[in-house]
Write a protein that binds this DNA or RNA. Structure first.
Lengths: 138, 138
DNA sequence: TATTGTTATACTCTATAACTATA
DNA sequence: TATAGTTATAGAGTATAACAATA
């Protein structure tokens, strides 16, 4: 079947991108999930349960994740203004100071494979991926 | 910058594919790495150190990984014929009996997003990903 | 009653360091 | 001496179940 090869290519690409993310994470002493949380919280704050839903993890997992990041000063908790049960999580300046160069490092690591494509091909690839991901990804 | 959006799309795609792989893994009680090892060993045997190098993990990590898979009857060890220090790892019939439907399940999970692309677009996407991954990925 | 978050517990994944056996 | 693999140990990520506080 033809699509099997596309799926193989997608899986290999996913592993390659994950390897780059893991490498960035290792350089900044962050796990994949920590890196992801920092990226998510760069432009918004979220409640514990929202983070859990967004990441597809259990609330108790987020508690531990935020505990460790908070201990390092990368994230902070604050009680939610309107719901006394809820806890907002947001990034600290120190967290942002880590997230920015980490993202730049990811771009750097992915540059060589992307350079194998012509600019027009890169635009096509981006468009196809977006189509695949669907409108909610924008 | 234009490439930032491509990198975002690549990262989101990678997370989406990983989510599908994790879901398949959960359904078959396999971690991402276990799933990956089963896929790798479907058509070849490898030594512990080769697996470590291929996966970018430490040998001791592979030892534990293979331990658990062996306990479940999915993989087996055998002494290498020519190097008395080395250990070959290969998949068992039970492991294969798990790997085949697991892969089918992955195809099933990725079918809906792929259906958003026309056949010609899918071919283009596959080609671009392959170009990115480089010749050694074939 | 239902929801939010935390705690306690347990297992897997991972790495580092020390070790044994073989090359 | 160097390499292959295992063991011991430790920390992070994850889930389940039980719980307190709030809605």
């Amino acid at each position: 079947m033809d699509d099997d090869e596309l799926i193989d290519a997608l899986a290999q690409t996913a592993f390659a991108v994950m390897a780059a993310l893991n490498r960035v994470g290792a350089e900044y002493d962050l796990s994949l999930t920590q890196l992801r949380v920092l990226g998510i919280l760069r432009d918004r704050r979220m409640r514990i349960s929202e983070l859990a839903e967004y990441l597809g993890l259990e609330k108790s997992t987020i508690t531990g994740l935020v505990d460790r990041a908070e201990k390092r000063g990368l994230l902070t908790r604050a009680p939610n203004a309107t719901d006394g049960r809820a806890v907002d999580v947001f990034i600290t300046p120190a967290g942002e100071a880590l997230a920015v160069p980490a993202y730049a490092r990811l771009v750097e690591l992915l540059a060589p494979p992307l350079a194998a494509l012509q600019p027009a091909e890169r635009r096509q690839l981006r468009q196809h991926l977006r189509t695949m991901l669907g409108p909610e990804s924008v």
